[in-house]
């Protein structure tokens, strides 16, 4: 009995230590946003903030263009998530319910392939393509490839959900004379809300965090999304820790909030998505 207590205690100590190790850098980042740079030098980086003022946030947002970066990130993420979910619901329906030639090819050769390709592998031709289309420095140049990749990912998640729905659901709707279009939007989509939330949250987080595609395609500072803006900002103001940490907090906070709100679903989505 005593030995078991020791084992249990060891487990708790271990998981707690790792959790602290993971959270500590974020806690330091967040606390630094309330401090002055002189205060960091004087009292050291580990000291707690003495008063809570949002001055740094105001400065970073309004004097260092983070308001623009936010707007750009939202203007990229919202159409990508909305558009890709609509695309994905349609293609997931086709790939699960309908029968047609080359179905396996589309599933494995196009959709699964689109999920696997990292941005690095396509960055050079993508620049040439967008340059040819006249879209360099246009948010569309980031939206279009992200939309395609997100649609592929959500297709896989939603398709596996559709595959689990009972066949009779489809058959009885068809006997009633409903078209595929009606069955998709009126019967299948409302049922798929859990899968939609999971894939929507994940693609939102990934799109929000994209760095390489905008790095290659967006050169105008006023059109940059947050991660790219943060990279530019920290390169320019190396010496002011609180300001840089405020920029990092502004970049990191929205995905963390989305994640914590939808936590069980997102973790399930990542682990299951990874395990598929």
């Amino acid at each position: 009995m005593k030995a078991q207590g020791v084992v249990l205690a060891t487990r708790y100590v271990l998981v707690t230590l790792i959790a602290l190790l993971v959270i500590l850098p974020f806690a330091l980042m967040f606390m630094a946003t309330f401090r002055e740079h002189t205060d960091i030098i004087r009292r050291g980086p580990l000291a707690l903030p003495q008063h809570f003022s949002v001055d740094n946030f105001r400065k970073v947002l309004f004097q260092h263009h983070f308001d623009r970066y936010y707007l750009n990130s939202i203007l990229i993420t919202v159409p990508v998530v909305g558009g890709s979910l609509v695309f994905a619901l349609m293609s997931a329906f086709a790939l699960s319910v309908m029968d047609f030639p080359l179905k396996r090819f589309f599933l494995l050769g196009v959709v699964s392939f689109g999920v696997m390709i990292p941005e690095v592998f396509i960055m050079i031709p993508l620049f040439q393509l967008m340059h040819g289309l006249g879209l360099v420095n246009n948010l569309l140049s980031v939206i279009l490839p992200s939309l395609a990749m997100s649609a592929c990912f959500s297709t896989l998640v939603i398709r596996s959900f559709f595959m689990g729905l009972p066949r009779e659901l489809l058959d009885s709707a068809m006997v009633d004379g409903a078209t595929f279009w009606e069955i998709l939007w009126k019967i299948y989509t409302p049922l798929a809300i859990p899968a939609i939330v999971t894939s929507g949250a994940l693609t939102a987080v990934w799109t929000w965090n994209t760095y390489i595609t905008p790095l290659v395609l967006i050169h105008d500072p006023l059109k940059m999304p947050l991660p790219l803006g943060l990279a530019l900002f920290q390169g320019q103001y190396v010496a002011n820790v609180p300001l840089i940490m405020t920029g990092a907090t502004l970049t990191a906070l929205p995905p963390i909030v989305v994640y914590l709100l939808l936590q069980p679903r997102v973790v399930l989505g990542i682990t299951q998505g990874a395990l598929k």
Binding site: I23, P227, L230, A248, Q263, V267
Partner: peptide, 11 residues
């Protein structure tokens, strides 16, 4: 444990 996965690597 999962938080680093959802934060931009740049941050």
């Amino acid at each position: 444990y999962f938080i680093p996965q959802v934060v931009a690597a740049i941050a």
